[in-house]
């Protein structure tokens, strides 16, 4: 069952990712990205990372992408779509991207051959995995308390920065 789900979600994810990058209308691009993010959340659920999957849907799809759609609406789609779609050197960019993908794939395959034998220790925290959200929460408030607080300060700075940037006169 798991392989079928994985391959289905992977095909959906890659298809919508390609559509996001190639769509000429930014609104369509945003909707394709939302679909890609939801299938990514499905992959997280498949890996038993329920908390990250739920946060993905709530924060990305429910928050960030709505923000994107608002901004696309504000900067008038007509003006955006009337222009040329890609930069002049798009062929070079695409070739470089494909080369990067090939290199990273080679590294991923070579690397996993090493670590799959060495580091796999399944079933150590199986009991913890059944209560995923609780375990992540405990980890977040104990070991990673300082990064958690720094993240909250980062969000505060981002709120102030966004307000200052978008305001006409301060």
């Amino acid at each position: 069952m798991e392989p079928y789900l994985f391959y289905t979600l992977a095909v959906i994810l890659v298809t919508f990712a390609i559509l996001t990058v190639t769509a000429s209308n930014p609104v369509r691009s945003a909707l394709y990205l939302i679909s890609a993010l939801i299938s990514m959340a499905g992959l997280f659920f498949l890996m038993e990372a329920e908390f990250v999957g739920a946060v993905q849907i709530l924060v990305y799809v429910g928050g960030i992408m709505v923000l994107f759609l608002f901004v696309i609406m504000l900067v008038s789609v007509r003006e955006v779509t009337s222009q040329a779609k890609t930069v002049r050197q798009w062929k070079t960019g695409a070739v470089l991207g494909v080369v990067l993908a090939a290199l990273l794939c080679i590294f991923a395959v070579k690397g996993t051959q090493v670590f799959e034998k060495a580091l796999a220790k399944p079933g150590v925290i199986e009991e913890l995995q059944t209560r995923n959200t609780e375990s992540v929460g405990i980890l977040l408030y104990s070991t990673y308390l300082l990064p958690f607080e720094i993240a909250s300060i980062l969000l505060l700075v981002a709120i102030i920065g966004a307000v200052v940037l978008a305001k006409r006169e301060i």
């Binding site: 990058v21 930014p26 890609t86 930069v87």
Partner: peptide, 8 residues
């Protein structure tokens, strides 16, 4: 690398 629209 290939798109012009800053939002995309």
């Amino acid at each position: 690398l290939t798109r012009r629209n800053v939002i995309i």
